[in-house]
Design a protein around this nucleic acid. Structure first.
Lengths: 209, 209
DNA sequence: CTTGAAAAATGAACTCATTCAGTCTTTTTG
DNA sequence: CAAAAAGACTGAATGAGTTCATTTTTCAAG
C-alpha cells in the first residue's frame, strides 16, 4: 500500500542526498552547485527546494547521518567502560573524534556548524541540535555509569559534569576543524589534558586490591 | 603630516563601520545590503570591497570592538575577585554575558560566530579567534589569582581548568544566541550549575575564622 | 474509465554578494 | 609647476542561490 507517489518521493530524496554527499566530498561545499546536485539526482532545481529549504540544509542532513553513527559507536563504551574515569572519558571522546573525519572533511564540518548556528530554526538544524544533546547525554550517562560502579564519587552532579566535559570536547572539536593544520592527535592530547583535573577530582579514592 | 589620502581613508572607513553597525541592528544582517551600506556611507560598492574582504568581515569587525570592551570590563574582577571560587567565576562570566547584548543582537552574534567558523582565515576572523584566546586566558588568570590567594588548591593545572570553564561558558553562550527565546538569567543559572562541581572541587578547604 | 482536485515538479526570472577593467585623485619626481 | 606613477574609486557585469507561476503527474470519487 505504499503509493507510487511515496515511493518516488523517497527515491528522489535518496538520489539527492547521495548526489550531494558525493559532490560535497569531491569538490567541497562551496563549489558544489545546486544545479549540479539536481542534475546528478535527475531532478530539477525547483524540486531540490521542495525537499530542502536551502543548500545548507542538505549539508546538515549529511552531517546528521554521520553524528548518528558516532552516537551508536559510543554505546558499547558507555555500556562497558574502562575502570578509570579519565581513561573511560578518553575512550569515548577519542572514539567520537576518530569517527568524525571518516565521511566528512573539515570544510564540511565548518560549514555545517556555521549553518546550525546561523539558521537554528530549519528542521535539519533542529535535528543537529538534538543530536548534540544526545551526545551530551551520552557523556553524562558514562559518568553516571562510572558512579554506579564506584569509580566516581557519590554526590557528584553527573549531568553538570557531563555537560562540562561535553561542551569542552565540542568546543575543542570546533577549534580543530577551524584550524586546517591541527592534527587529530594534537586535539586528543589537548582535550585529555583539559579533562584530567576534573576527571581526577571526581574519581572516588581507589580501593587497594 | 597625515596626508589628505590617509585622512579620507580613515573617514571613509569610519563612515562605513557606522553605517554597517546601524543597518545590521536596524534590519538584521541578512537584510542589510552592501549597496545600502555603501549608500549610507557615501561610497561605492566597489570601495566597500577595497576595505573589507566581504560582508562578513564587516560584521566581525563590529563584533571585535564589542569583545574588546568585554575583555577590559573583566580586568577589575580578575584584579580583585570575590574570595569564593564559584562566586568569582560567576562574577566574571556574568559580566561577560551582561555586556554581550549591549551593542549586538543575537542575530548578529549568530552570524559572526558562523563566519568565524566557516572562514577562519580572513584577517578579522583571526582577530576574533585571538580575542577568544584572550578571554580564555583571562579566565585562567582568574583561577591562578584565586590559587595565589589560597582559595584554590595548589597543584591544580590552572590553564587546563581555565580552558574548561571558558569552553563551557562559550559553548553555553552559543546555545544562548541560537535560541531566540532563552533568557540571560536562564543562561547564567545553567552555567553556574555546570560550574559548581569543578569550582567546588578545586576550592581549597576553607580555614575557620 | 472520467474527471477534478491535490501534490509535485519545473525552469526561467530574480536577488544579491562579489569582481574587475576602466577612470579619477593624490602624491611624487624632475 | 608639469607630468608620470601610485593609489583609490567606481558601477556595470557576473554568477550562484533562491523563488514562484505554470505545467505535469498522481490519486480518489463517481
Amino acid at each position: 500500500m505504499t503509493g507510487l507517489r511515496a515511493r518516488q518521493k523517497a527515491d528522489k530524496n535518496r538520489r539527492m542526498l547521495e548526489a550531494a554527499t558525493r559532490l560535497f566530498r569531491e569538490v567541497g561545499y562551496d563549489a558544489a552547485r545546486i544545479e549540479d546536485i539536481a542534475e546528478r539526482a535527475e531532478v530539477s532545481v525547483g524540486t531540490f527546494y521542495n525537499y530542502y529549504e536551502n543548500k545548507g540544509d542538505m549539508l546538515v542532513a549529511t552531517v546528521a547521518m554521520e553524528v548518528e553513527e558516532v552516537l551508536e559507536a559510543g554505546e558499547p563504551i558507555v555500556a562497558n567502560p574502562p575502570a578509570d574515569a579519565l581513561e573511560a572519558l578518553s575512550a569515548l571522546i577519542n572514539q567520537y573524534y576518530d569517527h568524525s573525519l571518516v565521511y566528512l572533511s573539515k570544510d564540511m564540518w565548518r560549514t555545517a556548524m556555521a549553518i546550525s548556528i546561523q539558521q537554528p530554526d530549519t528542521p535539519f538544524s533542529r535535528r543537529y541540535t538534538e543530536l548534540d544533546r544526545a551526545l551530551c547525554r551520552q557523556v553524562s550517562t558514562l559518568i553516571q555509569r562510572l558512579q554506579q560502579r564506584g569509580a566516581v564519587m557519590m554526590g557528584i552532579d553527573t549531568a553538570a559534569v557531563g555537560a562540562m566535559f561535553f561542551n569542552n570536547l565540542n568546543m575543542m572539536f570546533t577549534e580543530f576543524v577551524r584550524d586546517e593544520a591541527m592534527s587529530l592527535e594534537r586535539l586528543k592530547d589537548d582535550v585529555a589534558r583539559q579533562n584530567r583535573p576534573l576527571a581526577t577530582l571526581i574519581s572516588a579514592p581507589q580501593q587497594q586490591a
